[in-house]
């Protein structure tokens, strides 16, 4: 990794009004913790007492059968929707006790997201897509563009900076999405099947870049995947079955 890793830079240029120091962790040293989450969609129980702790800088893979509740758990952890019962804590704060405005500021400032598809804005160039979260946090256009291009370089896709998402390959698009998740130097990256649509070589490259970048900036990663080869990039895995979490090893 390059000597100008983003860690110190993040300290020097705070971009988020809600910045929580990584040291301000929840009890037991975890940065992010879900305790006994329950969530129903109509008659379907998606989460049935799921718990999870993620330490700062830790890479955790969520695995388990289709429909077991992995994506629901990820969305609750990221404060995208609230659980019916249970609590999500980030540092010393409870997500459910925050206002929606505060939660979305938290998502913008501290969290990064990578999904399987459809996450890039088709009308913007790839560089503009990567710059977007910075712009939303109030970073000036030229500065945002400069950092976006830097991030694209780190992910070895600087050559697609001026192209639109429709003009790049699936693997390139996914790297752009990873660049966008990383550009704000988030404390936690949430990734739901980030390599799901890629062949194994491309999937693997995306995982390598994502985990290297996360480790370089001490970001935690919560990664949903069906693919054991992808999960092997994590520090540990948590299996979700019938809305409950099981931890082994």
């Amino acid at each position: 990794m390059t000597p100008d890793t983003p860690g110190p830079l993040a300290e020097a240029t705070p971009i988020s009004p809600t910045a929580t120091p990584a040291e301000a962790t929840a009890e037991g040293g975890s940065l992010l913790a879900a305790v006994e989450l329950r969530k129903r969609f109509g008659a379907t129980t998606a989460l049935d007492g799921a718990s999870l702790r993620v330490a700062a800088g830790e890479i955790v893979a969520l695995m388990g059968p289709s429909g077991s509740g992995k994506s629901t758990l990820l969305h609750c952890l990221a404060g995208i929707f609230p659980p019916d019962a249970g609590e999500v804590r980030y540092g010393d704060r409870s997500l459910s006790r925050m206002s929606e405005t505060a939660r979305s500021a938290l998502r913008r400032g501290e969290f990064g997201f990578v999904f399987q598809f459809g996450q890039l804005v088709p009308e913007l160039t790839c560089a503009e897509n990567v710059a977007l979260p910075l712009r939303l946090s109030g970073v000036r256009r030229r500065e945002a563009q400069r950092r976006a291009v830097g991030e694209l370089e780190r992910l070895a896709v600087a050559d697609v900076a001026r192209k639109r998402p429709g003009e790049v390959s699936g693997g390139q698009g996914q790297r752009v999405a990873v660049a966008r998740a990383l550009v704000t130097q988030p404390k936690v990256i949430f990734a739901d099947e980030p390599t799901g649509a890629l062949d194994s070589l491309n999937g693997e490259q995306v995982m390598r870049l994502l985990t290297e970048a996360a480790r370089a900036s001490r970001a935690a990663v919560v990664l949903v995947t069906h693919d054991a080869r992808v999960a092997a990039y994590s520090d540990r895995e948590v299996v979700v079955r019938d809305g409950r979490t099981r931890t082994f090893g």
């Binding site: 994590s234 895995e237 299996v239 082994f248 090893g249």
Partner: peptide
């Protein structure tokens, strides 16, 4: 348990 063991080796 077997799955955890396999994944550790894969890691």
């Amino acid at each position: 348990r077997q799955r955890a063991e396999h994944l550790n080796t894969m890691r």
